[in-house]
Design a protein around this nucleic acid. Sequence first.
DNA 1: CCGTTCATGGCACTTGGTGTCAAGACGCAT
DNA 2: ATGCGTCTTGACACCAAGTGCCATGAACGG
Lengths: 198, 198
Amino acid sequence: MAQRKRQLVSDELTRSALQLLALRGFDAVTVDEIVNAAGVSKRTFFRYFASKEDVVVQFLADMGAGIHAELAARPAGERPSVALLHAVSVPLAACGDHSERALPVVQLILRTPALLARFLERQEQWRNDLAAELAHRLGLDALADLYPRLAAGTALTAFNTVLQRWSESDGAQNPAELTDQAFTVVAPALDAFALDAV
Amino acid sequence: MAQRKRQLVSDELTRSALQLLALRGFDAVTVDEIVNAAGVSKRTFFRYFASKEDVVVQFLADMGAGIHAELAARPAGERPSVALLHAVSVPLAACGDHSERALPVVQLILRTPALLARFLERQEQWRNDLAAELAHRLGLDALADLYPRLAAGTALTAFNTVLQRWSESDGAQNPAELTDQAFTVVAPALDAFALDAV
DNA sequence: CCGTTCATGGCACTTGGTGTCAAGACGCAT
DNA sequence: ATGCGTCTTGACACCAAGTGCCATGAACGG
């Protein structure tokens, strides 16, 4: 029950924050304004979010866990390019399905340097997780071999490129379609190891 | 002459900053300490650098311009994978040649979240520049086609992976060698467009 | 009904970063 | 040498992000 109350406060905080930030831009809104709108104290805000950037980036943070989980769930023998395509497709398709909410946030992040920086920093973590998962799938050493990190990074490059194009087109382009296109370009590198093994 | 004086102040600032930051860590050093060591005012510091992070990241910022210039200088008909390999190799080889100075800075950046974030943010700019240059070389539309951005991002993924491995090995591994290895994995994707054209 | 626990709010404080202005150094012309 | 713009700097005040600390109050269990 205390759990639910926490969730409630957190939700209200992100709601107020995203509304204000999307409306007036990241730098023009102070944390004091956000907490006033949400009806809590500034001190409480920083108990829920590590920084002003976090309240926005957190909103997309689940995607990282989602990609990782999806990759782990793919069948063991699947080619890396196919497994990664599916892993990345799920959250991107979700974006396309909820453009109303997702698009403003994505655009805000991609257009605000401070937010982009934090977002990319988070992605480094995703990349390490994906690399570890790939290494596990292929029986490689995540630290010694270059391939897992390269493959994870390349997949995330495709992810970012799709997100960027989707954002720039104001949601006009279909994320799922863009993802497929991106992976047809990138797949040869992702399967490089598997092909070498053959 | 005023130009040289500016350069002198800037150099002294970066020198003092890097020494202190490498010694005690990014968060444990305040800007006031840096400017005291350099003998200038805090206000002057922020006239030279946009942020505390910048004084470190700037140190590597030239690499971006270097990569771009190198790519532009490659022969027109060269395959993308080869052109990008050379473009990325130059600054990485320079790192290997000056490990004494470069390694501590790279390690500081990769180990400090705030610095990593700013560094990656800068790289987004590199990525756009490289994508534009690639599009120009291949007669593509940098905005409409996915390939240029994917290729630029993939090359930078290789770049980052090499940097990371070099940093983690405390400089033991040879950057030039790592770069070659990374590009043998990644090359198939980089040449995907060229092969399609054939 | 009492004590514990936990989230919150308020407050003081540090630090990064900016606007403003006056003072000094330099080059240049008279 | 004198006077005049220009450019750089330092000092000061100021704002906003973020943290440590402690009192308070509400929910929960005995």
